[in-house]
Simulated scan of single mutants.
Amino acid sequence: MEATNDTTILVKAAEAGARQLWRDGYRYSKAGVVTVDLVAMDRAPRALFGGFDRERGARLMSALDAANARFGRGAVTLAAAGIKKPWETKFEKRSPRYTTRLSDLPSL
């Protein structure tokens, strides 16, 4: 597989992997991803055949990053990432974080 930093390609790969691993009757939990051997995109090897259109992907990712920088993190997401799932953490009942956020310190 060719190296990429294009979120759309990464989401498609994650969905394909999840489809391959899915088995009915099992309980699943969220998991993280560990990245290794990271290199700058201009130094990453290109595929000889059937490679990604890096320029198109770079323009799209730049547009997403610019919108999120202007309107706040997560303002624009891919449809697959933006759907609220029942197992997501719910923060409305979280206790105050006195030791990590000045804004949560009680005041008189």
Rank of each mutant, 00 (worst) to 15 (best):
A3T: 01
F49C: 15
D104N: 07
T77K: 12
L48S: 12
E92D: 10
L38W: 04
F71T: 05
G32I: 02
W22N: 15
W87N: 15
R54C: 12
A40D: 11
T89F: 14
M1C: 14
A81D: 15
N68H: 09
G51F: 08
G25I: 05
A13S: 02
R101V: 04
Q20H: 05
T7P: 12
K85N: 13
L48H: 10
L64Q: 06
P106T: 03
P45L: 00
T8P: 07
R101P: 01
A16G: 14
F49H: 15
P96I: 12
E2V: 05
Y98N: 08
G74D: 13
T100K: 09
L21P: 02
Q20C: 06
G51P: 07
R46D: 09
Y28V: 11
M41N: 01
E2K: 02
P45Q: 00
G72I: 02
Q20T: 04
G32P: 05
T4G: 09
P45F: 00
V39M: 09
R97T: 14
N5F: 03
A44P: 01
G82A: 11
A3W: 05
Q20Y: 03
S103L: 06
R27N: 14
P106W: 00
T99W: 09
G57W: 00
R101L: 13
A14M: 10
M41Y: 00
A3N: 04
K85Q: 10
A14N: 10
E92A: 11
D53K: 01
N5Y: 01
L10T: 01
V36R: 12
E15Y: 00
P106R: 05
R19Y: 04
L78N: 03
A75W: 13
M1D: 15
W22Y: 14
R70C: 12
P86M: 06
G72P: 01
A40W: 02
A81Q: 13
A44V: 00
